[in-house]
Amino acid sequence: MSDMQYAYAVARIRAKELSLLNAQALEQLLAAKTEKECLSMLQSRGWGGAKNEDGAEQMLEEERKKTWELLKELLKDLSAFTVFLLPNDYHNLKAAIKAVYSDSKPERIFADGGTVDPGTILRAFREHDYSLLPEPMRAPAREAFETLLHTGDGQLCDFILDRASLLAVYRAGEASENELIRKYAELTVAAADIKIAVRACATGKPVQVILRALAPCGSIHVKELAQAAAQNQEKIYEYLRSTEYADAEEPLRESLSAFERWCDNRIMRAVRPQKYNPLTIGPLAAYLIARENEIRAVRMILSGKRNHLPEQSVRERLRETYV
């Protein structure tokens, strides 16, 4: 599809952007006294399904579904958005492996919206027929399953699939013709690598183990990062100072959750120029990222209200908004 052919889709997205929650709307939600009040405010903005008695999670799930339905309607072929769908596939691989390994009935363990049907994934493991899976998933699926069978170590199995997921996201990003999608994939993988390195450093993992967990990407030299992580946190910061993620040091020193917030904000800043892009698939990808960000923010607020957390503590965790 040439960029010109996105004119209709982008125009619809422009109109849809009007209903995105901005910082002011999030403040209003924060100011609500209870979770119920928040839900009612969201319902008045058209959130949730037709039934008003939906719970918080159902409402958020409904919103996610609405976003994907809109994108499916606009794009017909979602292959350009594989980068956003692949993590669901790898989540489903993990869930299926564990279900087959423990011989349990897989109920509500699969994520919607992958590129492969969860039933097919389950069958691939049950019948040991990995050819049912797309080619790039076969080797990590086999390796993860065999590792689980031989060692019984679920964490190691997740470890293999998490790295495979990151590699798949990076490759999908590289294959994309759109600059925003490429940048998103790059940032996602780089952020995950930094998080893995910090966690591995905290738990004192050796360099070979760290190297096996890190996924290569353009902006991070995994060998150098692994070597730094095998020494101490200061070495990680020192390495980051030599990359484009030098300003990640401050949030990392604060906490991993502050770093995650920094990553999301960085992605949002990369996405924001799409507000002024009249054509190309970029604004559609930006809308999807903005919706995911919005749903995450609402989940944080609802959870804060449910657990009676102070407003300020929730506010500190909120990410920058697209609009």
Binding site: M4, Q5, A7, Y8, A9, V10, A11, R12, I13, R14, A15, K16, P278
Partner: peptide, 14 residues
Amino acid sequence: GLAGEAAAGVVTED
């Protein structure tokens, strides 16, 4: 034609 596609997108929503 191109502008019409964009216009139709807006009118679909509003």
